[in-house]
C-alpha cells in the first residue's frame, strides 16, 4: 500500500531534497510551501503523515497543526516537525497543538526515513 506524505517547507531546496528521499523509499509525496497551502492540500486529500517546518510565511507549522487537528478525519495522522528551533517551550507548544515528534535540522536522509518508517509503521 502506498502512503502519502505531505512535506511543508518554505524552502524549495528542502522540499526537493525531502521529496527525493521519500520518493526513493516508495512514498507518494505532496508538498506545500506554507501552512495555509498545506491546509488547502489537505482539503483535497488525506495524507498518512505530515512533515512540517515551523517558521513559514502566512501560517506557521504550529498554526497549521492546530487547524489540521480541528478536522476529525485528521485525528491520528502523525505530524512531525522539522525545524532549526530546538527550544523546549516551542516543542511543548507543538505537542499541545497536536504534533507527535520534533526533529532538528539539519538532518540526514537515513534518519528522516527511519522516522517516517517508524511513524507509519512501514
Amino acid at each position: 500500500m502506498t502512503r502519502t506524505v505531505l512535506v511543508v517547507d518554505d524552502s524549495p531546496s528542502v522540499r526537493q531534497m525531502m521529496a527525493n528521499t521519500l520518493k526513493g523509499a516508495g512514498f507518494v509525496v505532496v508538498t506545500a510551501a506554507d501552512g495555509q497551502e498545506a491546509l488547502d492540500v489537505c482539503g483535497r486529500l488525506r495524507p498518512d503523515a505530515v512533515v512540517t517546518d515551523q517558521n513559514m510565511p502566512r501560517l506557521d507549522g504550529i498554526g497549521f497543526c492546530r487547524a489540521f487537528r480541528t478536522t476529525p478525519q485528521n485525528l491520528g495522522v502523525p505530524i512531525i516537525f522539522l525545524s532549526t528551533e530546538s527550544e523546549d517551550a516551542i516543542k511543548q507548544k507543538a505537542r499541545a497543538a497536536g504534533a507527535i515528534g520534533w526533529m532538528i535540522k539539519p538532518f540526514d536522509q537515513a534518519k528522516l526515513l527511519a522516522v517516517i518508517n517508524r511513524v507509519l509503521g512501514a
Binding site: L75, P78, I79, A99, R118, G121
Partner: peptide, 10 residues
C-alpha cells in the same frame, strides 16, 4: 497518543 498518530504497535 492515538489522536496524535502514535502507533503503540510499532
Amino acid at each position: 497518543t492515538l489522536a496524535l498518530g502514535g502507533r503503540p504497535e510499532a
